Simulated scan of single mutants.
Amino acid sequence: MAEDDAFTEHRPLLFTIAYEMLGSAADAEDVLQESYLRWSAVDPATVEHPRAYLVRVVTRQALNHLRTVRARREEYVGSWLPEPIRTSPGVSEDAVLAESVSMAMMLVLETLSPAERAVFVLHDVFGYTHGEIAASIGKAEVTVRQIAHRARKHVHARRRRFEPDSGAAREVVERFLRAAATGEIQALMDLLAPDVVVIADGGGKATAVRRPVTGRDGVAKFVLGLARNGTMAARIEQAAYNGMPAARFLTGGALDWLVAFEIRDGRITGLYGMRNPDKLHRADAVHALDRGGHQPWKL
């Protein structure tokens, strides 16, 4: 059917929008399912630009979903991290896309209001105009401009510069893992930036430090402690998650936890560890992400 073809064609773009607005692959999939049901009830012949129409539907569904999950996240046990998504090498080739799905940026987006998040994502990441966004979220264009200014100021004050997944970044990760395994503290310290931070998400369902660990000394001691107690003794695979180099720790062939590395100027500035099993059981699937070439709504 034509509607199936259109939805399938634009699915990577729609998933990327929903994920960036929600920080959860599971929630993004729910939004896409709801959006597909709405799309399937529409006569395709009445829609001149299917992609624009679908983006608007997904945006509205994601906004509704985001408002319902915010209260749940406020009651979260320990530090909350976005659900990690395994990404293809091509993501790192688009600097805007790689930054927009990075753990650090997703955490900044989490501090925005739902409307601010939607406007920032659609305008600064996907390139839609204020007028187009206004038509999508049901607000006046002047209001959207004000929201965009407020959101951009907030994000730019808190964003962390990083290097996307690359051969050089993976080499840094490899050296880090080797230094941790062998207990070479000086080699470890040399790889850590002075302001490095560790954030771990266990969700109250797996052991994880509940508060961020900051600073080179604290992080080095924390990592070496994990190595000594055998936590890092699992089989390790390198991969890419959220456009960042990452390490997968497998025990008995099953993914036990994963760490995404934020790297700047050859040093590690952030380690984002996921142990919450609810956020790991889809971690093997590679997600196709797409910002798409901008096309006007014309609805």
Rank of each mutant, 00 (worst) to 15 (best):
R291L: 11
L299I: 12
R282P: 00
G90S: 09
L63K: 06
P84G: 12
I147M: 07
L177S: 06
S136K: 10
G204P: 11
V91E: 04
A168I: 04
R60Y: 01
E141N: 09
F120G: 01
Q146I: 00
A2E: 13
E93V: 10
F176D: 04
A148S: 14
L63H: 01
Q33N: 08
V121L: 06
V209N: 12
A95G: 03
P277N: 10
A254E: 15
L224F: 08
L255S: 05
A240D: 13
F261K: 07
E75G: 00
H123S: 14
P164C: 08
R160C: 00
R11Q: 15
A187P: 10
L32H: 07
L97T: 09
E132F: 04
M244L: 13
R72M: 07
A134T: 05
R210Y: 00
F120V: 01
D190Q: 13
A157L: 13
P50N: 10
V286F: 08
Y272V: 00
A148T: 02
I133M: 04
M274V: 11
R152Q: 11
G203A: 11
V31H: 05
L109Y: 15
F7V: 06
D5C: 00
L13G: 00
E262M: 05
R291W: 03
R145W: 05
T68P: 00
T214I: 11
A260G: 15
H10M: 02
R216N: 05
Q61R: 15
G225I: 07
R282D: 13
M106N: 12
I236F: 01
P82Y: 08
A220R: 08
A140D: 15
W297G: 05
R159C: 00
A140I: 00
S136L: 10
G203S: 09
G253C: 05
T87W: 09
T16Q: 04
L299A: 15
I268P: 03
R117T: 08
V223Q: 03
R117G: 01
V101D: 03
I147G: 02
I147K: 02
W80I: 12
L97D: 09
G230D: 08
K221A: 14
A26I: 06
F120N: 06
R235M: 10
A25C: 05
H149G: 01
V144S: 04
T16K: 07
V69M: 12
V219I: 10
R161G: 11
L258Y: 10
A151V: 07
A118Q: 06
M106L: 15
R264Q: 13
V173P: 04
G292I: 07
N242R: 11
R67M: 14
E9C: 03
